[in-house]
């Protein structure tokens, strides 16, 4: 596994596929993902959230599932893996553990900031080259 938050091979493929739309894709991903991470954080802060509640877990699992997909497509390999672990907690693949869930969400948040920095740098490069 690479230590880079984003797989640069994936990024170069994305640049090829998206062509002129590449910066737009980066922007859409950043804003959409920021919302998703915030939603996750807010869900955990909700007093009604409990690792024992099926409804809570299901909601968290879906969020993680969806985020796993988009981060995977964007080459944020490690972030996508963290999402998978969280999804497994939420979907009951492993026994849900409140401390583990909170730790994973916090790791996802931290990893996302690193990924976002990479993409923002990409955006700046794009602007610079135009």
């Amino acid at each position: 596994m690479s230590n880079n938050p984003v797989d640069f091979n994936v990024l170069s493929t994305l640049r090829d596929v998206m062509e002129a739309e590449y910066p737009a894709l980066l922007k859409v991903f950043i804003s959409d993902s920021t919302l998703r991470v915030n939603d996750m954080t807010l869900l955990l802060r909700d007093p009604a959230f409990a690792a024992t509640s099926t409804a809570s877990l299901q909601r968290l699992g879906l969020m993680a599932h969806s985020f796993k997909g988009s981060t995977g497509n964007m080459g944020a390999t490690h972030l996508s893996e963290l999402c998978l672990q969280l999804e497994e907690q939420g979907r009951g693949v492993v026994t849900a553990d409140d401390a583990r869930i909170r730790s994973l969400v916090s790791q996802i948040r931290d990893e996302f900031f690193l990924v976002r920095e990479v993409f923002e740098r990409e955006l700046e490069l794009c602007h610079a080259s135009h």
Partner: peptide
């Protein structure tokens, strides 16, 4: 796809 960036990426691939 409910995921906007995935949708965008896939649209680009299929259009190409």
């Amino acid at each position: 796809d409910d995921n906007v960036s995935d949708r965008m990426l896939l649209s680009a691939i299929v259009s190409r």
